[in-house]
Each structure stands twice: as C-alpha cells, then as structure tokens.
Design a protein around this nucleic acid. Structure first.
Lengths: 230, 230
DNA sequence: CACCCTCTCCACCTTTTGGGGGAGGTCAGA
DNA sequence: TCTGACCTCCCCCAAAAGGTGGAGAGGGTG
C-alpha cells in the first residue's frame, strides 16, 4: 500500500487529488497539509512514501519544503524510509523546474494532468522512477544534449594524444602543478614538462589554463562532484 | 493523422508494434524498415512524423540512423517537416541513452512498455513533448541535479570577490593570458596582475589553472557553447 | 634488422606568473 | 571629514611554466 501525502494550500484542490488517489486500491492518502511548514511536520509524523507538493503556498513554498524534507531524510538515512516528492503545479517556468530537481524532487507534473496519469506518476515514482511533464522532459533533454553535443568535435582532438598525455591532461584539469603531476604519476618533473608540452602543442593550446578549459569543454573533466579544496 | 514509421530488424516485433499503433484511429503506420540504411531511405520517401527506432540492427544501428535522419532534416529545414524519433529498445545502458539524446531522439522507452503507454508516448512526442522510461528520467535528473547542486556552496565564495575580480576570473576561465585580459578590460597589465593575485588569494587557489577549475565547478563558466578556438 | 612511436629524462633558455611591497585616485557611508 | 573599499598602476624578485633540442629504453611492425 502506497502511503501518500497531499500538500496544497487550496483545500478544494487538495481534497480533489486526495479523492482521486484514495480511490485506487493500492494507494492510501495518509496526510494532507496546507503550507510548507505543515508539510514538514506532517511528513515527519506520518512518514508517507510519496508527497504531492504544490509550489505556491503561504508560510513556506513547496520547493523549500521539499528541500528540507529530503535533507532531513539524508541525515536520518537509516531510520526513515526513503520518501519521494512529486511537484504538482499549474506553472512550469524553468526556474521552478531546476530548483525542484535541485531540491531532490522525483517528479514535476502540471495540474492539468489527467487523473489516470497522476495515479500512474505516483506508482512510477514509488517504483524508483521519475516522471516529468512531457514538455519539461523535452527541455531537460535539450539542455543535456547541448552539453553533450559540443564535446563531439573536441573529443576527437583527444585521439591525437597518447595515453600518457591524456593522463597528464586530466591531471592538469584537476588543478595540479607539474610537480604534483610528477608525484601522482610516479615520473620525473622533467617528463611531465615534456608531456605537457606535447599536449599543448598537439591540441593547439598555449598554456595549462587553456588546457583546463579544453578538458571541461570536451568532457574529459566535468563540473560537479569534485571537491575544490585545493 | 500521425504518420509513424517502425524500424526494427525483427519482422515479428516490427509487425507487433505496427499493429498496435495502426489500431489507433489517429495513427497510421506508413512505413517499416529492418536496418538503419533502410530507415534513412524510408524516412526520406515516406516523411513520417514519428519514427520508432530499435538500436541493435544490422548494417547500421538505430542511433547512427537517428543522427543521420535528424541531421538531414536540419539541413533541409524548410522542406521536410520536423520528424521526431523515439528509441525503442530492450536495454538501457547509460551509453545508449546519452548517445540517443545526443543524436536528437525525443524519446527513449523500453520494449516492455505496455501498449497503451507506447501509443501515449507517440502522441506525446508528436505533440512536441518528450518521453523517457521512468528509470532513465530518474538518472537524467540525478545527473542534472548534481551539476546544479555543487555550484551552490562554491558560488558563495564568489561573493567575496569584487565585480572587477569576477570579471578577471571569468576572463581567466576563458583561457586568456594576463596581457589579453588587460586588453579585454582596457586596463594595464600590472592591474590585471593585482586582480589575479587577489582572486587567487581570496578563493584559496594557487594558480590560474585552478581558477579555471573553480570557475567551471561553481558555474561561472559552463561547458558547452564555447568555441575552443584559442 | 631497421624504423617508428612512446615513455622516460636532461640541459638551457625565455616568458609568464604570482607574491611582496607601495602609491594615487574615486566614491560611499559613518 | 575621515575611513574603508575599490580600482588603477608601479617596482622588484623568485618560482613556475613553456620551448627547443637531445638521448636512451622499450615495443611494435614491415
């Protein structure tokens, strides 16, 4: 049985969604909330599997509430079972979508969704998947393809480098100095200079700073996940 | 009426999908193909709105065929009306997904999808949206959130910089030398050195290469869109 | 075998970079 | 008005980086 919580400041809308979901044999609406603050408290008490969250609400908006609820879970980890959030809103400006995904939402659907699709979304998300409104998926793909796309022609230039040279380039893209690279690769400092020189000349770059740019642009290095604790 | 083409090397599978779709009143299967090469030719001749494309096929795989078909359209632009591709496969390794999105696919669904959902996917994509298998959407979101997320705390460090220093940092992240930055900002080379020094010291970085890394990690610079034509 | 590529290292040199001061100017706010 | 933050520029100096040329060792290939 899927335990669902519905959060929306309009009681009528809230009841509507709750009724649709409660009508399903495998879904049970265990809580409702009208503000972000209430949502956080109710989530703690009722431990729902899925939260349907509106964005525009008094006291605290749904994105902030989502972030806090999911953050709490990260900390608790062992205790609370994973709860997942579907953002349910009337609008879909990019800013909302990005913030929602950043907050950790697993879904972002518009309120004009057909009831069966909403039920489907709940089941999908409960099952470990994610569900976005079709237009949003489209935009997400576009953004993604853009990032992937550019690397294409650049990545081909990487082929001209030898294995060792690519390793050196990766190290440069990590912010390492020649001495550090030497240590990391167990080779002499002079050797590193040789490799760096050929990397720069083969790729048509001038200095290591440009090499770092190149590495990021072609996908050898990617933003995210790195500690910039130099 | 949606004109659909089905591409799969297994005739049985192909007919199955075609029958399901043809059964819908607003969908018409106008062509079938068994290889990537056939698909390209058939797409040219029959001008379908939607192509359901398998990946593993003899002669040319579905990803390559997708890329070529969509590329041709980009060139033609005015002539051919936009055609959109849904990748339909049994497997979903990340590599396939990325390549598919890069090729320009608007959908990526698994063959175990229920028939109604397939029909729904076709209509959604024809309508300008995109449809991914739930698990894939999930992974895409994770990747996206990761990219968005990390910049957060780092971006705060940017606040310590003055406006001019941020400009200089951006220029560094562009691969510019001090002399080039001076020229770009209409200031003396000595001034640039001053700014660079304070940027490095304020951010706790050692050299400009690390500054480039920082700029990418915190989102001041982003991969994609830049010409690396130093 | 000779040949080519790669990886390893060395020496010498020039340029760039980064750190340490100092100094004058503007401009906003206490 | 004075202080502080910011931008601008200067000098000197040490360290790092980058270019050039050379050289030996190992591994493949024709």
């Amino acid at each position: 049985m899927l335990r669902v919580m519905v959060v929306d400041d309009q009681a009528l809308v809230r009841r509507g969604f709750a009724l649709v979901l409660d009508n399903e044999p495998d879904i049970e609406v265990v809580a409702e909330a009208g503000t972000g603050v209430e949502a956080i408290e109710a989530a703690r008490v009722h431990q729902p599997d899925i939260i349907l969250m509106d964005i525009r609400m008094p006291e605290m908006d749904g994105l902030e509430a989502t972030a806090r609820i999911l953050q709490t879970q990260e900390r608790a980890e062992a205790g609370d079972k994973a709860c997942r959030v579907i953002i349910l809103t009337t609008f879909d400006p990019d800013e909302y979508v990005f913030r929602a995904l950043q907050a950790g939402a697993s879904g972002f659907v518009l309120k004009d969704i057909p009831p069966e699709a909403l039920v489907e979304a709940v089941r999908t998300v409960a099952d470990g998947g994610a569900m976005l409104a079709p237009g949003i998926t489209q935009r997400l793909i576009s953004q993604f393809a853009q990032k992937l796309g550019t690397g294409r022609n650049l990545a081909e230039r990487l082929d001209r480098l030898t294995t060792r040279e690519r390793e050196v380039l990766a190290a440069i893209a990590d912010g390492k100095s020649n001495a550090e690279i030497a240590e990391a690769l167990f080779i002499g400092a002079a050797t590193v200079k040789t490799h760096v020189s050929s990397v720069l000349s083969k790729l048509g770059l001038r200095d290591r700073a440009q090499a770092v740019v190149f590495a990021y642009e072609c996908g050898l290095a990617t933003a995210g996940g790195r500690d910039v604790g130099f």
